[in-house]
């Protein structure tokens, strides 16, 4: 049963991810992205990582994709890119990528030695929080500065200029 569910969700994730790439309508692509995220969250749940699944749904599916959709609808893009989506160079690049991927998978099957199991039962909220505020306190503080400069950047790059008419 678990195997069946794993294949189901893995297939759903990959299929939806391909839908993001090949879809020419931005809204449809964003919805495919949402589906793909839901599949990944389901895979996390099957690995007993409830926390990760929850955060994934909340942050990516809940916030990021909604932001994408918001921007896409705000811009009101009609019809998409007028150029032909699949040119010969696209096919060539896809062929090379497929060949590389096949080589990689074959050598992995031949020579790769994988760990037999995955870490079961990832830590819950309590241990996660305790780690964040003890062992990983410094990265958390640095992330604070990261968010600060990101916010400043948005202000600086979008604020109305002091002198009008300077935009070339």
């Amino acid at each position: 049963m678990a195997d069946f569910l794993f294949y189901l969700f893995a297939f759903l994730t990959v299929l939806a991810a391909m839908g993001v790439v090949v879809n020419r309508n931005a809204v449809n692509a964003a919805m495919c992205l949402l589906l793909s995220f839901a599949g990944v969250a389901a895979l996390f749940t099957m690995l007993d990582s409830g926390l990760l699944a929850f955060v994934f749904l909340l942050v990516y599916a809940g916030a990021v994709v909604v932001l994408f959709l918001f921007v896409v609808m705000l811009l009101d893009v009609q019809g998409g890119d007028p150029r032909k989506p699949y040119q010969p160079i696209t096919a060539a690049a896809a062929g090379v990528a497929l060949a590389l991927l096949t080589t990689g998978l074959l050598s992995l099957a031949e020579r790769g030695r994988l760990p037999g199991s995955v870490p079961a039962a990832a830590p819950g909220f309590k241990e996660f929080a305790a780690r964040l505020f003890t062992t990983y306190l410094l990265p958390v503080e640095v992330t604070g500065f990261l968010l600060l400069i990101a916010m400043l950047g948005v202000v600086v790059l979008s604020k109305r200029l002091e002198t009008r008419g300077a935009v070339k």
Binding site: Y136, V142, F145, L146, I149, G153, V156, L157, L161, A166
Partner: peptide, 26 residues
């Protein structure tokens, strides 16, 4: 690698802003 990646991202995000800082120039 956690410290490494957080510090690297802080640097990179800062550079994203600085590179486009003269936003009146295309």
């Amino acid at each position: 690698f956690v410290m490494f990646f957080v510090a690297l991202e802080t640097v990179t995000v800062g550079f994203y802003i600085l590179v486009s800082y003269f936003r009146t120039s295309a």
